[in-house]
């Protein structure tokens, strides 16, 4: 394992703020190692975050960074990428930022297929604010705002990204470090929208309230529940456990299997390529003449 990732790590900001047993530190290292293995120039990378535990990751990263507003990481990143498609733009979001308050930006970034790499740390609840339920919290789960069990189902982020048209959709867990580095690296190379969901433990809130045992037991559970579809591109029906019919209600109990690996690979042209065509057409058609009269 190379130590090059330290080039991207702001060691003066250590120690990490995250709770013991949290997955975010591991995801951070995997991200930075992916940067290092691609030899990305730090000045040409823009990391955009929102608000939340994983949203604090930018404090430790020595690239350009925008620590934005809650839920808007992808929207800010869209502005950066739309104007400067040559830069590597990475959005770091938790399940709150990505699937809940910022859900609209998530599906539209995928639909628009804009070349942003989204690395989503999904710990099934809002850790920063004390363990409330989020858009991915499974039904029945106890959280600080679902003390009698959660009355709603959670999103399957990968299916959502797939349905919205993302070019690259993958899932891994915080436990599967090597797979995580590999998937993030591949996502960074994808010209269109790429999303890597990382199942990550929150022993402080979600694990404790749902009696999932110690941090160690939660990490072991990630290991045991993961089933890789292989890296060649697989079935995107990721919330479906083996043997379950596709039309069956998704099982979202904590004991569910976590399907990992590359789930979607498409070659749809990305936003930058399509907008370049728009610019070419505008030049050809002698733009600059607003057709107000035609309206």
């Amino acid at each position: 394992m190379s130590l090059d990732y330290r080039r991207y790590l702001d060691e003066t900001a250590l120690p990490l703020m995250w709770c013991p047993g949290c997955g975010d530190g591991t995801i951070l290292k995997a991200l930075l190692e992916a940067f290092a293995s691609l030899g990305l120039e730090r000045e040409r990378v823009v990391v955009v975050t929102g608000i939340g535990c994983w949203g604090k990751a930018d404090d430790y990263i020595r690239t350009n960074a925008i620590h934005g507003t809650h839920g808007r990481a992808l929207a800010v990143a869209t502005g950066v990428k739309a104007y400067r498609p040559d830069l590597t733009v990475v959005a770091l979001m938790g399940d709150g930022d990505c699937a809940t308050i910022g859900g609209n930006h998530f599906i539209h970034a995928a639909r628009r297929n804009i070349g942003i790499t989204a690395v989503v740390s999904n710990n099934l609840n809002y850790g920063m604010t004390g363990g409330q339920f989020s858009g991915t919290t499974p039904a029945g789960s106890k959280t600080s705002t679902s003390p009698y069990g959660h009355a709603e189902d959670g999103f399957d982020l990968c299916r959502l990204a797939d349905a919205a048209g993302a070019n690259f959709v993958a899932r891994t867990t915080a436990y599967h470090y090597r797979q995580m580095v590999r998937l993030i690296k591949e996502a960074l190379l994808e010209p269109g929208f790429a999303m890597v969901e990382v199942a990550s433990p929150c022993p402080t809130y979600y694990g404790r309230l749902n009696r999932q045992g110690s941090a160690r037991e939660m990490w072991r559970s990630l290991k045991d529940r993961a089933r890789s579809v292989g890296e060649e591109g697989g079935e995107a029906r990721t919330g479906v456990a083996p043997g379950q019919r596709p039309d069956e209600e998704p099982r979202s109990k904590p004991a569910d299997v976590i399907v990992t690996g590359v789930l979607v690979r498409r070659t749809r042209p990305d936003f930058a390529a399509r907008y370049s065509d728009v610019c070419r057409r505008a030049m050809k058609e002698g733009g600059g003449e607003a057709q107000l009269d035609a309206r």
Binding site: V46, V48, I66, G68, T69, G71, R72, A75, V76, A77, T78, G79, V80, K81, A82, Y83, R84, L87, N104, H105, I107, H108, Y275, V278, C279, R281, A282, M283, G286, G287, G288, E289, A290, Q291
Partner: peptide
């Protein structure tokens, strides 16, 4: 939307008003 592409500019219609303001901030920082 009509005039910007031919002067080297970019136009994007975002999914909502919040996202528009966020995208303006992201672009301005470049």
């Amino acid at each position: 939307a009509h005039d910007l592409p031919s002067v080297g500019g970019k136009f994007i219609q975002m999914e909502d008003e919040i996202g528009s303001m966020a995208a303006v901030i992201g672009a301005s920082l470049t």
